[in-house]
């Protein structure tokens, strides 16, 4: 397998410029903003909270509800607001990527609502959304086994690369997003569209998991900044 040279000059195993900020929405129990290059995802967590109507409740655990949506102006051509088949599918795989990390059994009959808004789409939106949701859940004080990190890898003109941007995605014939729980060493989302030899799929997985560790550190740092650095700064302000 050879590594691709990229339109934006990145190395094949180099992710785009990453910024994570936790606690951006005062009303939500927890929230996070994640940007990877031009892709920007926002996640808000509300809950655990009451779930009505009753028939939606699970008597032995909380329901994790994930809604993925995109703002109408987040794409090159305006996209119509409201759910699409694509957004419903992404909502489902996002939920299943996060569920293994959350101690849902602690809150029977309630719901933990995760709302993901893609504010700008430039490829890799579902993985950006999962990263945002993971930080937002932790920020909300939801009990979890682990954080969940996610990244997509693909193939550009026969060569493999991590974290494709929109321009690269137009040229790609292969896209493989993954979500991963680093401490538990569990892959919780794995999708692939394309045409790759088995051996290369394994290598791309290796590439993705290496980047996952980078995202893991960035998620932790964002949470620390929100809760430790922010408190210390505020204390310093009131002292001065």
């Amino acid at each position: 397998m050879t590594m691709a040279t990229r339109v934006d000059g990145r190395k094949a195993d180099e992710i785009r410029k990453l910024h994570i900020e936790a606690g951006v929405l005062p009303n939500a129990t927890g929230s996070a903003l994640v940007s990877l290059g031009e892709t920007i995802a926002l996640a808000a967590v509300y809950g655990p909270r009451m779930l009505h109507p009753k028939h939606l409740q699970a008597s032995d655990k909380a329901v994790l509800s994930t809604v993925y949506s995109m703002v109408p102006f987040g794409t090159t051509e305006r996209n119509r607001p409201g759910p699409s088949r694509r957004s419903i599918e992404i909502g489902k795989v996002t939920r299943q990527a996060l569920e293994p990390a959350v101690f849902l059994a602690e809150f029977p009959k309630t719901t933990i609502d995760v709302f993901i808004n893609i504010l700008q789409a430039d490829a890799g939106t579902r993985t950006a959304g999962i990263n945002a949701a993971s930080v937002a859940l932790a920020d909300a004080g939801i009990p979890m086994r682990d954080l969940v990190v996610a990244i997509a890898a693909g193939k550009i003109e026969g060569e493999y690369a991590i974290d494709l941007n929109g321009k690269e995605e137009e040229l790609t014939d292969c896209d493989m997003p993954i979500a991963y729980m680093p401490k538990d060493n569990r892959i919780t989302l794995l999708q692939m569209d394309g045409d790759m030899p088995l051996d290369d799929v394994r290598k791309v997985l290796d590439l993705s998991m290496k980047s996952c560790m980078q995202l893991y550190e960035a998620q932790k740092l964002a949470l620390r900044n929100r809760w430790i650095k922010a408190a210390q700064q505020q204390e310093a302000r009131t002292e001065g």
């Binding site: 929405l25 009303n27 939500a28 808000a44 809604v67 109408p72 409201g82």
Partner: peptide, 17 residues
């Protein structure tokens, strides 16, 4: 012109049209 009260914004906002 179009406006959406996304459920990220308030515990009172719900998913839907």
């Amino acid at each position: 012109a179009n406006a959406e009260f996304s459920p990220v914004a308030s515990p009172e906002f719900e998913v839907g049209p």
